[in-house]
Nucleic acid binder design. Structure first.
Lengths: 190, 190
DNA sequence: GAAAAGTGTGCGTTATAGCGAACGCTTGGA
DNA sequence: TCCAAGCGTTCGCTATAACGCACACTTTTC
């Protein structure tokens, strides 16, 4: 049962995160044991990568450490600097809209994809319905957002967020419009 | 040990997420049991809110369902529509920079705070060093970003992301600059 | 330089997570 | 109509997660 390498990694991820979190707070194993109402023996095993704790054990641990549960169970996010120049990326032209992908933020069970969206004057882009949320900030021009029948008209600096599971579309009623688009989706299985 | 209401909620969250995920995929409990190499008995208990599974059990479940682990253990994100007008929010003027908070995206163990950032001509804003990542997209003007000694100069449409744990600052070398700022932090304990 | 308090790691014991098997139930061929 | 195949639940049994305790070691304190 513990032969599956996938399952082993879950233990190892927890072990690494646990040690890192405890070190970050410069907390002794004994103290953490007291705070979390767990035995030192259990914690020692967990940090060594042995053991297969229950979710309540991990929950107690997360509470004692002041860390969210997911932060203990997921591998830490990568942290490097990235620069994307406006002209560097090939646009993904869809029906009416033109998207450039700036980058991706992976956090917990979700991913945020960040785009620049340009829509030509008088054009309209229907968007795929999907689980998650979308966020848009208008940079220049006037942007109409249609969500589930409703229409919201946005000017420069205005912001909207909505459930992407509802049918929705973006349109530029008059002049061309430029906006920053944030698409927040459940992460596919890695 | 199971008297703590906090721990109880972890079970309930899992139970709810599990039932929802299985229903979404219209998968029978028996089939899920086969896919995940768990017994029907165990799954039945978990979905009823009884039981306190180990992380390997939850991991097997997540794999079988094609859902990320965090998505089973964290309460689902709220999903309502929100509109923020450019003039609606009071700016948070700091040293050199002026921030307006558009909204917050909670996902997994992290939160994304979304801001509009304005910096006056020739001004420079030092930012607090903190765990997480920052992302910026320039809307208008020229933005200098200083990260750990390095300087990156960005024009309209350019994008940068970096580790917020490094010392960093934003500056407008010439004219005033407007940008969308995304601050991605670990969620504090709820 | 003991004594005292703290650290993390190994034991045997106990409570329980997960299992297989049997159950009652509904569905849909033959 | 009866039987076969699926469903989800319940019940002992067994493996094991978490425990208490003792241990070796380091650091503090008087």
């Amino acid at each position: 049962m513990s032969a599956d390498p996938r399952e082993r990694s879950v233990r190892d991820v927890l072990a690494a995160n646990l040690k890192a979190a405890r070190a970050r707070k410069s907390m002794s194993l004994s103290r953490l044991a007291r705070l979390s109402d767990l035995s030192k023996a259990t914690l020692s095993q967990l940090e060594s990568g042995a053991g297969n704790p229950t979710i309540e054990t991990v929950s107690s641990l997360a509470r004692a450490l002041g860390e969210p549960l997911a932060r203990l169970l997921e591998p830490p996010a990568r942290r490097d600097m990235a620069v994307v120049r406006a002209g560097d990326l090939a646009p993904l032209t869809g029906e009416g809209a033109c998207l450039r992908h700036y980058g991706r933020i992976e956090s917990g069970g979700l991913v945020c994809d960040l785009y620049e969206q340009r829509i030509g004057a008088g054009e309209r882009g229907e968007c795929p319905v999907r689980e998650g949320t979308e966020h848009a900030v208008v940079q220049a021009g006037r942007l109409d957002v249609f969500v589930d029948g409703d229409r919201v008209s946005l000017g420069p600096g205005d912001y909207v967020s909505f459930d992407a599971a509802l049918p929705h579309a973006y349109a530029a009623p008059g002049e061309p419009v430029r906006s920053v688009l944030l698409v927040n989706l459940p992460r596919e299985v890695p």
